[in-house]
């Protein structure tokens, strides 16, 4: 093994296939994307160079409302970190502690991640249906008719209504990551704490969570970058509507490119999504590092 590692030719030989794939699938498209963001282009006829106009329009056009989509994405990111992750963490710790039917529950909570997002979207569409949806039906049954809403069609409720399924779907995903993390903490640490008289809460707070830091960091990066590029469920549930109330950068991008044949401005939005994801990935690294120090 060591001999292989010292052999430069072998290293290059093993890295090259992945490097080529990585460059052609990821690096090259990013640069092309940046390139196209300087053009007015309908995807078919010859592009027209317009400098930074797309960037100016993106932030100045009230009709397009790009700043609002960024705000929505940040709200989702905030909810993911401060609501979704704590729930996942709690469930992971409880399950890893060893409850009855532990394996069954782990699998159960993970199923939403496995189901196709479009199917989940259809399920929630039916639940939110203003006429026969289970949510409004239940509210009517218990006499809370005044709380009935057109959940996905009302500008005030559309955003929370699409966020709930997104948060719900990936709780299981983060739970699985954290569950594996908890399981990998040496049992001796827990036993030692127990001998010293620590209760469950103290063990969780002082032993489990500090040891979970690396996993939590990965989860936070996933949660935030996932929120910034959230697309599928929103597209299925509202398509960004009504009147942009639940629009996020990626749904706006799709609307610009495929709805209005504006590839240039679509590329500009993509540049921002990429930039934000990089920015937050690096930022989170930094935050967790200072925490450790």
């Amino acid at each position: 093994m060591n001999r292989v590692r010292r052999n430069k030719t072998a290293i290059i030989l093993f890295i090259i296939p992945t490097l080529i794939l990585f460059c052609t699938i990821i690096i090259v498209p990013i640069f092309m994307d940046v390139y196209y963001s300087f053009f007015k282009w309908n995807g078919m006829t010859a592009p027209e160079f317009i400098g930074a106009d797309n960037y100016i329009e993106l932030f100045s056009s009230k009709a397009m409302g790009f700043p609002r989509t960024i705000k929505n994405a940040f709200i989702l990111a905030g909810l993911s970190v401060f609501i979704q992750l704590p729930i996942s963490l709690f469930m992971a710790i409880v399950l890893a502690r060893g409850v009855k039917w532990e394996k069954f529950f782990v699998a159960l909570f993970f199923t939403p991640v496995l189901i196709s997002t479009v199917v989940i979207g259809q399920l929630w569409l039916k639940m939110y249906n203003p006429q026969y949806g289970i949510i409004n039906s239940f509210l009517r049954l218990v006499g809370l008719d005044n709380l009935c809403r057109t959940w996905l069609g009302d500008g005030r409720t559309a955003l929370p209504a699409v966020f709930v399924p997104i948060l719900w779907q990936y709780i299981g995903y983060h739970m699985l990551l954290l569950y594996a993390g908890v399981k990998s903490i040496p049992e001796e640490l827990n036993e030692a704490a127990k001998i010293d008289g620590a209760n469950s809460w103290q063990i969780a707070r002082l032993i489990t969570i500090p040891n979970l830091k690396p996993t939590l960091q990965v989860c936070t990066i996933f949660a935030i970058t996932g929120s910034l590029k959230a697309f599928d469920l929103i597209y299925v549930l509202t398509g960004g509507g009504p009147a942009h109330a639940s629009e996020v950068p990626s749904t706006l991008m799709v609307d610009m490119i495929f709805g209005r044949s504006r590839y240039g401005i679509g590329s500009t939005i993509a540049v921002f999504i990429i930039f934000l994801c990089f920015f937050f990935a690096v930022l989170i690294k930094k935050v967790f590092k200072t925490e450790v120090d």
């Binding site: 990066i221 970058t225 990626s250 495929f258 994801c277 690096v282 690294k285």
Partner: peptide, 22 residues
């Protein structure tokens, strides 16, 4: 480590391109 971070971020960013063609 830094390189891994950037690599990972790139990988996550790019996974969204798959959403376009449904």
């Amino acid at each position: 480590k830094k390189l891994t971070a950037i690599f990972m971020a790139a990988a996550m960013t790019i996974s969204m391109t798959a959403c376009g063609s449904t």
